[in-house]
């Protein structure tokens, strides 16, 4: 599909029959693989659900399923942004820092036990503004100064944590005092938890941006070949900055929702999210090299990991093992994804 976009931009007329036949072949194979991978994920999900419901009858109850949906909402929101960044071929390690900084800004500007200003809706705007600034800064340092994204975002992770810690200061724990908001994320409306509705909205918007807007199309093209994108005169620079900004905004939204869920402000509100998000994107089948993958696959990946964690805890596995399980799955997934493309001469850093 991306080949077509690029070809339209570059050629406008030199296509020959041979190239067309080859292209349609590639497209057909891609469509088949695009179906096969999500199908195997769905099978894995079904197997997991089957095994866990046999192990513990509490697993398949409505309240636990709503629990799973609430737990998966925040990783889902953050993962949509992470998918876009990984489709560029880059990586965003800063999610936990952005979540901390945004969540802390938000709670200090909302009704909380420390008093201070209660800006109501403006707290959301300002907090998401903080996330946007961090995201744009990451994007600009990455594109304009050509610093590898894993270093920029590793640094931004700690910059975000630092901002959150400084905002937190040495005062008492800021506790959420807005009765309407307390527990809002796990409250049920129309059969689903509120935070999951937000996640569905974000997923829908994400799919729309990726499929039907210039930013999304150019993102995929950059992941395939940035050289071609640039020589085709497409705005690679602006799109990369925009994608990092979108990712940070979504991490920020996740940070606010996590703060609402936790009821108190904490700089480490996002801890552990990176460990679900990156493995989820990779298991979903989005290539770390960029250009191939999608948001719906990531959604499957998040569900797989959340259900796995939820089921393991219900089966009595200690929560200490959680990071080992997600870590091992991440390693297995990247090894599995890269195995067929191994090549003695291919350079992997």
């Amino acid at each position: 599909m991306v080949h077509k976009v690029v070809a339209e931009q570059v050629a406008g007329g030199i296509s020959t029959t041979a190239i067309r036949i080859r292209e349609s072949g590639i497209e057909r194979r891609a469509r088949f693989r695009g179906l096969a991978e999500p199908l195997s994920l769905l099978v894995a999900l079904a197997v997991l659900i089957g095994v866990f419901s046999l192990l513990n009858e509490r697993f398949l109850t409505a309240s636990n399923l709503q629990n799973v949906l609430t737990q998966s909402a925040i990783p889902l929101i953050v993962a949509v942004g992470a998918t876009l960044v990984i489709l560029l071929g880059s990586i965003d390690l800063s999610v936990e820092g952005v979540m901390g900084a945004t969540g802390m800004t938000w709670i200090l500007l909302s009704a909380n036990s420390r008093g201070g200003a209660d800006l109501g809706p403006w707290a959301w705007v300002i907090a998401l503004g903080v996330a946007l600034v961090i995201g744009v800064a990451s994007g600009l340092i990455f594109t304009a100064l050509k610093v590898p994204s894993f270093i920029v975002t590793l640094g931004m992770w700690y910059v975000g944590l630092g901002i959150a810690t400084m905002l937190y200061g040495t005062d008492l724990l800021p506790r959420l005092e807005d009765e309407g908001l307390k527990g809002w994320t796990s409250r049920i409306s129309f059969g689903l938890p509120n935070s999951f509705w937000v996640a569905l909205l974000v997923i829908g918007l994400g799919i729309f941006v990726l499929r039907s807007t210039r930013i999304g199309r150019v993102t995929l093209a950059i992941g395939n070949s940035e050289t071609i994108v640039r020589s085709a005169g497409l705005p690679a620079f602006r799109v990369k900055v925009a994608v990092f900004a979108i990712a940070a905004l979504l991490s920020g939204l996740g940070g606010i929702l996590a703060t609402v869920q936790l009821d108190i402000g904490s700089p480490t509100v996002g801890s552990g999210v990176l460990f679900i998000v990156i493995p989820a994107v990779v298991i979903g089948g989005t290539h770390l090299g960029g250009g191939k993958g999608g948001i719906l696959r990531t959604v499957l990946g998040v569900f797989l990991l959340t259900i796995l964690n939820n089921g393991l805890i219900l089966s009595g596995v200690e929560s200490s093992y959680q990071s080992a399980v997600t870590g091992a799955i991440l390693v297995a997934a990247i090894v599995f994804a890269a195995w067929s493309q191994r090549d003695r001469l291919q350079v992997a850093k």
């Binding site: 990586i91 460990f275 493995p279 091992a328 991440l330 990247i334 090894v335 291919q346």
Partner: peptide
Amino acid sequence: QVPSFALTLGTLG
């Protein structure tokens, strides 16, 4: 032949 930051992020866990 996998990227080191992703691999070591996994083994970190």
